[in-house]
Design a protein around this nucleic acid. Sequence first.
DNA 1: CAGTATCCAGCTAGATACTG
DNA 2: CAGTATCTAGCTGGATACTG
Lengths: 152, 152
Amino acid sequence: MAEVATTSAAQKRVLDKMEYNAFLAQCPSRQLLERISDKWVVLVLCALGGETSDPGAATDGAAGTAKAMRYSEIARLLAGVSQKMLTQTLRALERDGMITRTVTPTVPVSVSYELTDLGLSLHEMTRGLRSWAQDHMQQVLAHRSAYDEPSV
Amino acid sequence: MAEVATTSAAQKRVLDKMEYNAFLAQCPSRQLLERISDKWVVLVLCALGGETSDPGAATDGAAGTAKAMRYSEIARLLAGVSQKMLTQTLRALERDGMITRTVTPTVPVSVSYELTDLGLSLHEMTRGLRSWAQDHMQQVLAHRSAYDEPSV
DNA sequence: CAGTATCCAGCTAGATACTG
DNA sequence: CAGTATCTAGCTGGATACTG
């Protein structure tokens, strides 16, 4: 009935959320997570970083050296990726200064991608992630099984 | 016309992808990323780890100590989360053994959540992430601006 | 070869309403 | 208080077709 109070509790909450979302959008760690949480970003990083995506191989110290790869090479390595996603991912990484894109105007054009120092740095960081995963994921999986098992 | 070859190139590609996806699903680092890439997981971790989600505060060494929090406390701290997402996130983290859920049957029930050692370990790891973000995100943002700027 | 453009199915997250 | 249940809008990623 009372139309006087211009900001109702509900409206207040909406504003709170907008504010909060704006804050989150600013947060550097969120921005980072937004990037690397992308399914293909890490995989492309691994490819260009010279690692196979096989978690068994190249476990810790031994990472292959970074190398330039052509579009089709990457596409072949990441068998499951669609053209759209691959291009999108590469563009995003280029935009962020993680990789360089070099076009060589041969008869059919050839394009190669390579990690920058920044990209290499990011790749190193994801190694830390993978290492954590290797150390703890077994434990997590055990917890899941225990949780899912009703009683027996 | 020739229906003889039972596996066409197209079918082969489909199988490749299925195989690849199955492989990815197994990969521990992917499973980890699947978890932490969730918008709210890291935030809940921070809340229970005693940090504000403010990137400015508690930058490096000084993390508040882990503390038990009630459902409503967490909800209030993460102003933007919906009930559904919060519950879902908490359940997932509980299932993975990252947090414990304790129900105290008071008059209106009260439920509190607390980080386990495993959860604390994960939280520590995300600190590494945030630290990388703080060191490099500025650079990334600069690259983006440069990339987006057409010519000027 | 290395894309771009378009369309659409499927999943996700939010809003909303209800409950022990 | 701490959820559960339901519905739906919107985004994302995949398939497909076309191009310099």
